[in-house]
Nucleic acid binder design. Structure first.
Lengths: 157, 157
DNA sequence: AATGGCTTCATACTTTCGGGTGATTTTCGG
DNA sequence: CCGAAAATCACCCGAAAGTATGAAGCCATT
């Protein structure tokens, strides 16, 4: 393709053109006897200047941009359970005992009284007693309420 | 400082030097009568070539690298109470109905079946039926388990 | 018209939970 | 060592929760 050929050799054409036009211009200036004393030096200087600029342009055109990796911090919000810290104050103010807390934790895991009893190696009745105390201290009636309240108070995760 | 002055004007000095040396070289070549026919064109061409290269070099030296910002995501964890967004996918995959979800929500608030029935203006039996379906779909046996699982799945806050 | 899902309700039954009471043992600080 | 708090266990009883089964009405899709 003609246009394709021109496209690919555009730089070369431009190059030649620049040189030709510059020479013509300089000759014309010479003929117009504006320059005659240091003619050659001016020629050379002009050519040097123009082609330096051309070189710069070329370099900018052809050089691939240097890639500089810049780390941009982007906040990625994640669902994460904030590290649970037991609310000791609330625990103390309620007078919640260690054993009761253990029962409460297992309750919140959805275990039945019997399962809790098995895990803690105590009788079902014992767990019931603990549960009753827990409800009393938390001032609730049902285990679901106890769990809800205890979570809000920071007694369990 | 002298050296500082030279440093800062290095490019200009280099420039002048190049031109001077080139001219001397060309004159010498001319004197050696290797060139004499198309002397001027060769002069011009040589100067053009050299200064183009110089321009390219200059450009590369002086041009600040184009910064292509490459975003590298860096996770910044932060504690936040996750604003609850309902996990619709899980909801759909479980085939959980709207009514069932309502019951589930109230369950998690610690309400009894009777209270839920009153709030939703349905009978206790209806709530029980919903509850049974919920347990079935969540594959659990107790309401406490259902709450625990539903929370983890993002069905309820 | 038929099908299937959702919601509603009922009945009957079993299991678990929660309240109340009382009692024994263990632990731990004064 | 003594006493209070904690932990353990038992028994009873009623309430609540959960299981199983059936069924009717509604609504959208086929």
């Amino acid at each position: 393709m003609r246009s394709g050929f021109f496209q690919k050799n555009k730089t070369i054409f431009l190059y030649g053109f620049s040189l030709a036009i510059l020479l013509i211009l300089l000759r014309w200036l010479e003929l117009k006897y504006i320059i005659y004393d240091h003619a050659f030096e001016i020629y050379a200087g002009s050519i040097a200047l123009v082609f330096t600029l051309l070189g710069i342009w070329l370099a900018r055109k052809l050089t691939k941009p240097k890639v500089e990796t810049r780390v941009v911090e982007k906040e990625v919000y994640r669902i994460m359970q904030e590290p649970f810290v037991l609310n000791e104050k609330a625990l103390a103010s309620l007078g919640m005992s260690q054993r009761e807390l253990e029962v409460l934790e297992r309750m919140s895991e959805g275990l039945s009284n019997q399962q809790i009893a098995d895990q803690l190696f105590v009788s079902l009745n014992t767990v019931k007693t603990h549960a009753a105390r827990i409800f009393e201290k938390l001032d609730v009636q049902r285990r679901t309420q106890a769990i809800e309240k205890a979570k809000r108070m920071g007694l369990i995760p």
